[in-house]
């Protein structure tokens, strides 16, 4: 069923446990209102795609969720904590449970693949031994099929490989929620499909929930359990891919042409 924003969406089914609840989140830059009373829920094990035009505020939304941007108003409840109210120390704790895959991959140029993957561990798993860290790094790289690149520099990797390494780095802390910022942008359709299938497979393997920002319909079809339409800064509609695809609403239809 397609849910319009005016209607309060029931918080999932009885067996659904919300891991993230956004309520009336607003953010503006100067006179530009990017998010306007945006609300939605993410349930455990669910993959929600946020679909919207370029510049519609999708990236701002997930940066608000991870605490990189502070919303002007509203609450962002992640795993029981309201993100805008947390101090840096509390934010760090939450960030260990929330992975973020950047659109540009954001791999550290000055480091090797191994060092890139070890970086999140140095803070969150400070008490681990070298052997344990090595095992985790190898496991994360094996999950994305790139164990052989462990000692390569990131500049030697192709676009698809960089995306996979970034995904491995995101997953190394075994997060409960993963935020993907346009994971297939800039990739060819075949590699994009591989990445989308990998995301699906890893979500199943580690039972993670995810918010995926995308406008790549192939990726959306593969990974989405449900889709949130971000239009005019609001949660314009929410529903399954097939439901939205057959919607009569003109604004929704534009995305599926």
């Amino acid at each position: 069923m397609i849910t319009q924003p005016e209607i309060n969406r029931p918080i999932g089914q009885e067996h659904d446990v919300p891991v993230m609840q956004l309520r009336n989140v607003s953010k503006s830059f100067g006179t530009n209102d990017v998010l306007r009373d945006f609300s939605f829920d993410l349930n455990k094990g669910e993959n929600v795609v946020v679909l919207g035009k370029s510049g519609s505020g999708k990236s701002v939304l997930i940066k608000c969720i991870i605490g990189l941007i502070k919303p002007d108003s509203g609450s962002i409840n992640v795993l029981g904590k309201n993100i805008p109210e947390l101090n840096n120390h509390e934010l760090d704790k939450i960030r260990a449970k929330v992975g973020f895959l950047f659109q540009s991959n954001a791999l550290y140029d000055s480091m090797t693949v191994r060092e890139n993957l070890e970086f999140p561990l140095r803070r969150h798993k400070a008490k681990m031994t070298k052997t344990q860290i090595d095992e985790l790094v190898v496991e994360a790289l094996t999950n994305v099929g790139l164990a052989h690149t462990i000692d390569m520099r990131t500049s030697e990797l192709s676009g698809g490989m960089k995306k996979r390494v970034a995904l491995a780095r995101t997953l190394i802390l075994k997060p409960e929620i993963i935020l993907y910022d346009e994971p297939t942008t800039g990739l060819d359709p075949i590699t994009g499909k591989e990445i989308s299938e990998l995301m699906r497979e890893l979500a199943k393997k580690y039972n993670t929930s995810a918010i995926i920002i995308s406008h790549d319909l192939n990726c959306v079809r593969i990974v989405a359990d449900s889709i949130v339409m971000l239009i005019d800064g609001k949660c314009y509609a929410q529903g399954k891919y097939e439901e939205l695809q057959t919607s009569n609403d003109k604004k929704i239809q534009e995305f599926f042409i």
Binding site: K63, F102, Q103, S104, A106, Y108, R122
Partner: peptide, 21 residues
């Protein structure tokens, strides 16, 4: 140049997200 390129390629944000100031 180093910090500038890290900033525009979101590496500084990535560092913050991974719990390093």
């Amino acid at each position: 140049a180093e910090l500038g390129s890290m900033k525009v390629t979101e590496q500084i944000d990535a560092m913050e997200v991974s719990g390093t100031n």
